[in-house]
Design a protein around this nucleic acid. Structure first.
Lengths: 211, 211
DNA sequence: TCTCTGGGCGTACATCTGTACGCCATTTTG
DNA sequence: CAAAATGGCGTACAGATGTACGCCCAGAGA
């Protein structure tokens, strides 16, 4: 890569890093200012346009990167889990660690999911659907769930875990512990309930089974 | 009430109405401007301060009113339900009607729950906890759940219903239908799972029962 | 080597924001 | 009836924001 393109990529990163850096509990993408981001990145405000057309474009990139970060982390967590232990429990732990170590990235996803930009909302929704789909596949192959049940179950699991993560953001350690335990109970409910529904739904179809 | 206080209350309402009016899918509380709200309410910008110290204070009032609206509606829905039919199903229907007829109020609650103001987040969380508590009581008295199970179950139900509502905002009628059916399945899972957990948890304590 | 491209800069401008200050007019209070 | 209180207004200001325009100069390409 040319020396020119290299430098360009560098300042682009600087912009993204500056933007991520300015996120906090009190500051979301929509109240970032072009000028302030440029300032922290060490370039003139007008130079911003050499890299992004808009703050909206910057934001979309951030959402994508945030989603990617989370997805990669979960992939690792799943690997770690398959070396022994419950995949679901390992996933939750990984997810909670993510929230703990990247709270602002999680806040980003959380907020933009219901934010004022349809493009952002769609991007986050897409990201979450990835999770649901992967989990749904897992439930189909490992727990032998019917596709529709698997999807509904996966969606419920992800929804509850995500909501717990959101709530955890404002809690202290002790309260988080209680929250986590409640979450486990809720996931168990879903697991047991799904099992029950699967059984009750299967019998009428027995006569139609192949072989 | 004095003629003076009456007029004051009127413009206060005008401010709140103007603010609610400016909410939309693309516009949240945090991008309302004092000047614009005052303009739509028909008063000078500086007169705003005669009613609210801040836009923050206006916002908090809006959150409270939004929560109240929802709570009142759900109360009505529950009454309607007790005249026959499943309370849970009726609650869901009422909730979905609320989202359908007051989408911006729902968006308000949804957004501020993860917004940038701790006070707003707390207010919405308080509002949601009302629901959970009421539902939890219902489950304890009507379905004889243990308190901890009842609370976990109620929380899960509310979380899922709320999440479905949020998702519904961006969907067309057909997609909403599929979403609603999935939601029913998920709520059934939780009901059955909770039942199972209650049974499995009760037996070891049988010998300690009074009487 | 010479030319061209493009990242970065500074200046400049129009627009919007919140809000401090002081005045007026009417209601309320004494 | 006089005095105080108060909702509302207009003016004014300082600061911030996005962005149009034009210049410069280092690297890319011929």
């Amino acid at each position: 890569m040319g020396i020119r393109a290299q430098q360009k990529e560098r300042t682009r990163r600087a912009l993204l890093d500056a933007a991520f850096n300015q996120l906090s509990a009190e500051r979301s993408i929509s109240n970032l200012s072009l000028r302030e981001v440029a300032r922290e990145a060490g370039i003139a405000p007008t130079s911003f346009y050499r890299h992004f057309k808009d703050m909206e474009e910057l934001g979309l990139t951030m959402v994508d990167e945030g989603g990617l970060t989370l997805r990669q982390l979960m992939r690792k967590g799943r690997q770690r889990a398959e070396e022994g232990g419950s995949v679901i429990r390992a996933s939750i732990e990984t997810f909670m660690e993510f929230i703990d170590s990247n709270p602002n990235v999680f806040r980003l996803l959380l907020r933009e999911r219901s934010g004022t930009s349809a493009a952002f909302r769609a991007a986050v929704t897409r990201e979450i659907r990835h999770f649901i789909d992967e989990l749904s596949d897992y439930l189909q192959t490992r727990a032998c769930r019917r596709p529709d049940l698997a999807y509904a179950q996966a969606e419920a699991l992800v929804t509850l875990v995500f909501a717990s993560g959101a709530e955890a953001l404002d809690l202290n350690k002790k309260e988080r512990q209680a929250l986590a335990e409640r979450l486990i109970v809720q996931l168990k409910m879903i697991a047991k309930g799904s099992e029950a529904l699967q059984r009750s739904g299967r019998e009428p179809e027995l006569e139609n089974l192949p072989k």
